[in-house]
Write a protein that binds this DNA or RNA. Sequence first.
DNA 1: CTCCCGTCCA
DNA 2: TGGACAGGAG
Length: 239
Amino acid sequence: MERTETIPYEPAPETVARATWLRGQLLSWFRSSGRSFPWRDPGRRPYEIAVAEILLQKTTAAGVARAYSGFIKRYPSWASLALARLEDLESELRPLGLWRQRALVLRQLAQSIEERGGDVPCSRAELERLRGIGPYTASAILAIVYGRTEALLDVNMARLLDRFFGPIGSSGKERSRSLHQLASLLVKGGHCLQINWSALDFGALVCKARRPRCQECQLKAECWYARTQITPTSDAPSG
DNA sequence: CTCCCGTCCA
DNA sequence: TGGACAGGAG
């Protein structure tokens, strides 16, 4: 037997074709409807990128957008953040939620970076050793700061992939592996940041968790979710 | 698996 | 009023 049957490192040809089509659609959609955030602006320092990624964890991007500029202005560097008073940090973070653990994480992260001479690690292993930096945040820093080809598989992209390609695997482990495979397939075609941000924005604005806008979605003809869940008389299920 | 947590929207 | 949010840690 072929080893590809037991070790599916290679996605099926049809999957590759659909992923390529999806890429084109997302990039096209992003040019006209993508979101603009201060932390996406070119020229941002690694510090500003890292802080944004911590703030964005399990928090709405719209909320972070409101607090971001003020936070950077008040704490403009790793050094200032490392020396911050915990109470001040907490009150700055309070409107975003998760303020207690995030204040600790940010200050400890700043102190760790300062001990390294002020530079953000450029390897996944080093990044994930730091408090508050897991697989996703490490990928984001590698992609945005160091220009590496990494998939930003957050809840938005996961939902989009899940719906577009259809349910994958029975176990959570298998599903996770397939999602990462699809995500890396998307990103490997080039334009890493554009495709990542387009998938995130599309998942947040069109392929929403609550009320997906399937009727006006340009992917509906090829989307598993739209083709199976939509009925002529009703939009996407409300639940 | 649970907790962290304020905000937003159906 | 409750689920969901650019996750991560215990």
